[in-house]
Design a binder for these strands. Sequence first.
DNA 1: TCTATATACCTCATCTGTCAATGTACTATT
DNA 2: AATAGTACATTGACAGATGAGGTATATAGA
Lengths: 113, 113
Amino acid sequence: MAVSADWLRGYTDAILLRELQEGDSYGYEIQKHVSALSKGTLQLKEATLYTAFRRLEQAGYISSYWGDEMQGARRRYYHLTPQGEEKLREEKAQWRETRKTLSILLGEDGYEV
Amino acid sequence: MAVSADWLRGYTDAILLRELQEGDSYGYEIQKHVSALSKGTLQLKEATLYTAFRRLEQAGYISSYWGDEMQGARRRYYHLTPQGEEKLREEKAQWRETRKTLSILLGEDGYEV
DNA sequence: TCTATATACCTCATCTGTCAATGTACTATT
DNA sequence: AATAGTACATTGACAGATGAGGTATATAGA
């Protein structure tokens, strides 16, 4: 079952920041990695991906630079800034809270309703 | 920590359907109940609540009727339809999938990254 | 009596993130 | 020459959340 847009909204930023925590990377690679990690259930669309990168860079959470590929298509690499690391910590805390709250509200395992 | 808008988006419908699974209810009561269950971390805004009711009724997932209050403000009660029950099952399955996927992507407890 | 608070519902304009569609450009394979 | 893969980018449309505003009843307190 695929994870749809509305359920994804708001998590995109956290996912991208988390990916960059493993080291600098670029759009296409991150897209493939997320797809692989999620076993294909989450397919970040290109437009979503690049809009998110713009947003995150504008906010100072990531910075970017062009790779020096000698052959093949050019790549824009992204780097997690200290503010981005802090933001990621917040987003993860937010996720834990949301997960707990929704599990309660939807009546899931281990949480009393 | 409060659950913010973007993290909530898309879950509203599921939450409301789940509330109605416990029996017919009305906006104000559901709002208070959700707030209590979530220990105040999730405050459904009125506008969000009522637009969601419209959406759900239009889709056939709930039906509504006016209560016969003899005193006090009038109440519009909502009732979960069979289609709504089915929809709730789907939404809960979707939530389990989303929770699993995001826990993996954000590198949480028990899931390897 | 006047005021504030709680109950209870409703609508509209605005904002924001997602995404289909479209475009550019290079490389490798058939 | 055609097809597929890599890689980035923009734009307009769409949908859900919400601030701000409005309506109405009931009760408690100054």
